[in-house]
Each structure stands twice: as C-alpha cells, then as structure tokens.
Amino acid sequence: MAHVHTIESRLGRFVETPVGGEIVRAFMPPALPPQPPIDILSLLPHLSLAERALGRLDGITTLLPRQELFLYMYVRKEAVLSSQIEGTQSTLTDLLRFETEAQAGQPIDDIREVSNYVDAMMFGLERLKELPLSLQLIREMHGRLLQSGRGGTKSPGEFRRSQNWIGGTRPGNALFVPPPVMELDTCLAAFEAFMHEDKSRLPALIKAGFLHVQFETIHPFLDGNGRIGRLLVTLYLCVHGVLRRPLLYLSLYLKTHRADYYRLLQEVRERGAWEAWLEFFLKGIADTANQAFDAATRIVDLFRADRERITAESDRAGSALRIHELLQQHPFLTAGQLVTQTGLSMPTVNAALADLERLGIVKEVTGRKRGRVFGYRRYLAILSEGTDPLPVAA
C-alpha cells in the first residue's frame, strides 16, 4: 500500500465552493515540484533529443541572413496557431495581408486577436530586460493580449475575481473547475516561487513543462489562459538561456495533438501522471525545433535560388533584386509601398513586378486593378505550413 500513499501526495485536493446557487468541487493543485520526485531517468532520452534539437535550431538562426526577419515571421505564425486553438479562424495570410493593407477599414475580430497576440509576445520579450519573469509580467502581457476585440470585457491584465470552469455549461457539470477565487493568491504565490527556485536543480526544459501545466490548472484569468500559458514556455526557455532567440513555439504541435494534450493535462490533475505529460512535452519541443530548423533551412535555400534566377533571367535584375529583398521582410507588399521603400519610380516598380510574376516568384493576390497586393508565393507556402484553421465543430 505504500506506493499508493506516495502517489497520493502528488494529487491535489478539492475545495467545496458555492457558485451560482450550487456547491462545486474546485481543484487545488499541490505546489511544485511534485512529490515524490519525477522519474527523471526515464525522461533522459527525450530530454537529450529536445536539447539537441534546440541546439541545432539556435545554430541555424545565426546563419540566417536576417535573424530578426525569421523571428518576425515566426512570431506571427505562432500567433495564428495559438489563436486557432482558441477557436479563431484567421490564417497567416489573413494576418500578413491585414498588416499590409491596414488602411482597409477595421479588421475582423479574429485578426485583431491574432495581432494582439503578436503584440503581447513582443512586449513580454522586451519587458524581460527590466522585469523578471513574474506574475506582474504575466499580468501586463495579458493586458496587451485582451486590449481590444472580444477580450475587452474579460478583465484584461487582472487575475479573475469570479469562478471559471473548463468544459460543460456551468461549474456543476464542468470537466474541470480551477481553484476558487479565495485560494487563487496562494496558488499563484507558490507558482511564482517555483518559477524562481533553484534548489530542485531540475533542467529548465522540465521546469517549463511543469509551469505550463500548473498555469493551465490554476487558470488565473477569465480568458486568454491557454495563449499566455503557451507563451510562458518560450519566455521561460529564453530567460534560462536554453534558447537565445524566441524561436520555439509549441502551438502547432499542441494543435495537431490536441486530444492527447487535453487528456494528459487532465491525467496530471487526476492521477499525478507527470512523467507521461513530460514525455509528450519534450517530444513536442524536439518536433517543433526540428520543424523550425527545417523551415529556416528551406527559406535560406529559397532566397538564394530566387536571387540567382532573378540575376540570370530578369531583364530588370537591379530593380527586381531590390524588390525581392523587401519581399523577404514583408511577403505581401503593394506597388505603392515598394515605390516608397525603394525610391524607384512607379513604372520601374510595375515593370519589375511584372518580371517577378513572369518568373513565378510573386503573385498578385487581390485580382483588383487598383491597390494591388503582391505576395512572395513560395516563401508564404513554407511559412504557412500547418496554419489552416481547425474545422469548426458542427
């Protein structure tokens, strides 16, 4: 029976709390790290594959002609994916075109949410220069995430003051009820303490896996918990030097395996099954880093091959190369933007664009005669992999 007792201490406890006229059992997670400690030996093969994949990714980013350019695109891809897990239907192309044609009236709510996510992420990375990764930083990022669009009514930047729940129509029939409001401060204080402790000497990747689950379990906001919880992983790895640039985002992996993801979170809560979750998490880190490495390599090759084709086959190689250069930074551009940014005349820009269209490098995407938008076709195809919205449940 001793074994049962040991796992017991990994389990949380339930607190009865009145919500809307019924008594609900809300869950209180035990503080981290789990007791008894996780079986780290069984996780070592997964840990070393994840660390190796991250090292490779870090290595190639130093070879990219413009690191910040890859980062710029990658952050946008993550914003789209992370928002899709929460049910938005916008694609990477929607976001990039919205940013290109920002003058085209008010954006739809979905794109606004995605662009808030980009803002929250960039804000968080910048803010880490002055502030440690902390509850305050998490709240500030949340404020940016929900600053406008549908989240405006969900207490941006504030921890919740009412009971929330996951699944079901009310707390009484929910799949999971997070800690009650009166226990929230205790849970969050323990969460923050674990973020900064070094007594456990756990590898940063393992700690990041713990923190993500604990944050989702505490569910401290009325909205945006999933998105902030995913961002937290990347920020934590940057702070601890596992990543030099914030190029690792788990949303595509979690979107692809979302049934497993939700099941494993629930098994940690119900059975203390941390090892199964960590194995899934580390595999996700390795897969994601390998995908990013592969995309970065293909992008570098594409840029080089297209430069060579333009040089060899374009009648206007000089101006076409300048435009190609700008399309690497913004894969959608209008002729007007190109005139402003290159200083070339409109006829020259139009002639060079026609040439790039003939070579199959750019494609006009609006079908309009005026205000035409040109997209860097193959670059967008690599960036967009995996970003089709999830089918809407009937």
Rank of each mutant, 00 (worst) to 15 (best):
A2F: 15
A2D: 15
V4Y: 00
I7F: 08
S9R: 07
S9T: 07
R10G: 10
L11Q: 03
L11W: 10
G12F: 06
R13A: 08
V15W: 13
P18D: 12
G21L: 14
I23C: 00
V24I: 15
A26T: 05
F27V: 14
P30I: 14
L32E: 12
P33G: 03
P36F: 03
I38T: 05
D39F: 15
L43K: 09
L44Q: 02
A50D: 02
L54T: 07
L54I: 14
L57H: 12
G59D: 06
I60C: 12
I60E: 08
I60G: 05
T61N: 08
L63R: 09
P65E: 01
E68W: 07
E68Y: 12
Y72A: 06
Y74G: 13
L81M: 09
S82F: 08
Q89R: 14
Q89Y: 12
L92A: 00
L92Q: 00
D94S: 03
R97F: 07
A102I: 00
A102S: 05
Q103F: 12
I111L: 14
E113Q: 10
S115Y: 08
M122K: 04
F123M: 11
G124L: 06
E126C: 08
R127Y: 04
E130S: 05
S134F: 01
S134K: 04
I138G: 08
I138N: 08
Q147F: 05
Q147S: 07
Q147T: 05
E158P: 11
F159T: 12
R161I: 05
Q163S: 03
G168R: 01
T169P: 09
V181H: 04
M182Y: 10
L184I: 12
L184V: 09
A190K: 09
L202P: 10
L202I: 10
P203W: 00
L205M: 14
K207Y: 14
A208I: 15
G209E: 03
F210Q: 07
L211Q: 09
H212S: 02
V213I: 10
P220K: 02
F221C: 03
L222D: 07
D223P: 12
I228H: 04
L232I: 14
L232N: 02
V233R: 04
L235N: 00
Y236P: 11
L237Q: 06
L237A: 08
L243W: 15
L247W: 04
T256W: 06
A259Y: 12
D260T: 12
Y261V: 05
R263D: 13
R263H: 02
L264R: 14
E267C: 13
A273K: 15
W274P: 00
E279W: 03
F280E: 01
L282P: 06
G284N: 05
I285C: 15
A286E: 13
F303S: 01
A305P: 11
E308D: 15
I310S: 10
A312Y: 05
S314D: 09
S319M: 11
I323Q: 07
E325V: 03
H330P: 02
P331F: 11
T334E: 09
A335L: 13
G336H: 13
L344F: 14
P347G: 02
T348H: 05
T348V: 09
V349G: 02
N350Y: 11
N350W: 07
A351G: 00
A352C: 15
L353Y: 09
D355H: 13
L356T: 10
L359V: 04
G360S: 01
I361R: 01
G367F: 02
R368W: 10
R368P: 11
G371F: 12
V373S: 08
F374T: 01
Y379S: 01
L383T: 04
G386W: 01
A393L: 13
A394R: 15
